[in-house]
Design a binder for these strands. Structure first.
Lengths: 207, 181
DNA sequence: ATTTTACTTTCGAAAGC
DNA sequence: GCTTTAAAAAGTAAAAT
């Protein structure tokens, strides 16, 4: 019995150590991504639930932390791409994506696909674009969604093209290159998306 | 209502010859062969007609991929084994061939709103950030479909052409049932 | 700026790390 | 889980022209 007790202490000690490590890892990733405390708390909630349900088995703590953070960002409508999460954590994009799927399935977390709208505020502020341009971009994205122009397209590419178009329409023009850089997509993608948007939507302006 | 044209794009089949093979000998005798034991235990043998690739293992088992019909798949395996028999006369004439996977493509005719499908259809995964297709898993037949915004579809995991076609038809019916197509 | 090549996802078998 | 094979879907990326 004494031995059983000692093992328990040892195990709980390890559990606490692991939790402490996970939380420090979470803090490190979060600060690198410039995420607010509320998102970190949401992520730690997901992580703790993963531990409670013994979902860490066979997986690295870093991977589960990264996936928890990815999920929390989406849930809080301040999405980060898998590439961005992979960059700050020491987990590959593939591993983050795989663990994310596993966690959402096992914890019954149901998140709709990321909306391009959620990327607008972040990209716009990094580009120094006004609230008017943001509103216009969101308006364009909503029109695109209604016309089936977002199915299968990357959310960041759609958001980038909408912001580019809105910036031109409202006289706050940004170059495709600058928009592409903050959105993490290529200029070719922005070009392809805005061609499609301007050709199929009545945006009232010839670019 | 149930008329869906399916096109078989790829077939994976396996065979067991029941006799171990000396891969090194085969590798040295042919030119169009790839063999790196450290990298992969199978020897890669490609045929131009039917355009297929066979993976031959030391255990005497082999896998054939790339054929676009069950007949071509069987023909490719027989041609491959005939080639092997020229080097080892003991390889039997009769052996079992099993179709392991059939990949087919089809067109549902109308474009799909994947966001809506993701919300209404069960057992789906849709992550446009990673891949433009929506993954739909069917239990009966046990196949997996990739649905695209264009209405085009890929069905994989089927063991028979019938199941591949059934999978697409059931998917189409389910989408119509949910008013998603 | 357009074209080509290539990678993302799904599936399955094989032998072994 | 990975390694290797082939193939389609459509989007995106990188390199070539």
């Amino acid at each position: 019995r004494l031995r059983k007790w000692q093992r328990k202490i040892r195990i709980s000690g390890a559990t606490e150590r692991n939790l402490a490590f996970a939380l420090s890892e979470l803090d490190r990733d979060s600060s690198r991504l410039g995420l607010p405390r509320s998102v970190r708390e949401a992520a730690s909630m997901v992580y703790r639930r993963a531990v409670e349900n013994k979902l860490i088995r066979g997986r690295s703590i870093e991977g589960v932390v990264a996936a928890s953070l990815y999920a929390a960002c989406r849930k809080c409508n301040v999405p980060r791409t898998l590439d961005e999460i992979a960059e700050v954590s020491r987990v590959s994009k593939k591993e983050v994506g795989r663990t994310y799927r596993f966690l959402t399935r096992e914890l019954n977390i149901k998140l709709p696909p990321t909306s391009p709208v959620d990327y607008v505020p972040r990209f716009a502020s990094e580009l120094g674009l006004s609230g008017e341009v943001q509103s216009k971009a969101i308006e364009i994205i909503e029109m695109a969604m209604e016309n089936g122009l977002t199915s299968g397209r990357g959310p960041t590419g759609v958001a980038a093209a909408a912001l580019y178009i809105a910036s031109v329409l409202l006289g706050e023009r940004k170059t495709q290159r600058d928009v592409a850089e903050v959105a993490g997509v290529t200029e070719v993608t922005i070009r392809n998306r805005y061609k499609e948007l301007t050709e199929q939507l009545d945006l009232g302006v010839t670019l | 209502m149930t008329d869906v044209d399916i096109k078989i794009e790829n077939i994976v089949a396996s065979a067991t010859l029941g006799k171990s093979i000396d891969l090194q000998t085969v590798a040295e005798a042919l030119e169009n062969v790839d063999f790196n034991r450290e990298q992969f235990p199978g020897l890669v043998y490609k045929l131009k007609e039917p355009k297929t690739a066979a993976l031959i293992f030391g255990s005497g088992k082999l896998v054939c991929t790339g054929a676009k019909s069950i007949e071509d798949s069987k023909r490719a395996i027989k041609l491959t084994v005939d080639m092997m028999r020229t080097m080892d006369p003991d390889i039997p004439e009769e052996f079992e061939i099993k179709i392991q996977n059939i990949v087919a493509s089809a067109n549902l005719g109308k474009p799909l709103n994947l966001e809506a499908v993701a919300l209404g259809l069960e057992n789906t995964e849709y992550e446009p950030e990673q891949f433009p297709g929506l993954v739909y898993r069917l239990d009966d037949p046990k196949v997996v479909l990739l649905l695209f915004g264009s209405g085009k579809v890929v069905c994989t995991g089927a063991k028979s052409a019938e199941d591949a076609k059934l999978g697409v038809e059931k998917t189409k019916a389910r989408l119509a049932e949910l008013d998603l197509i």
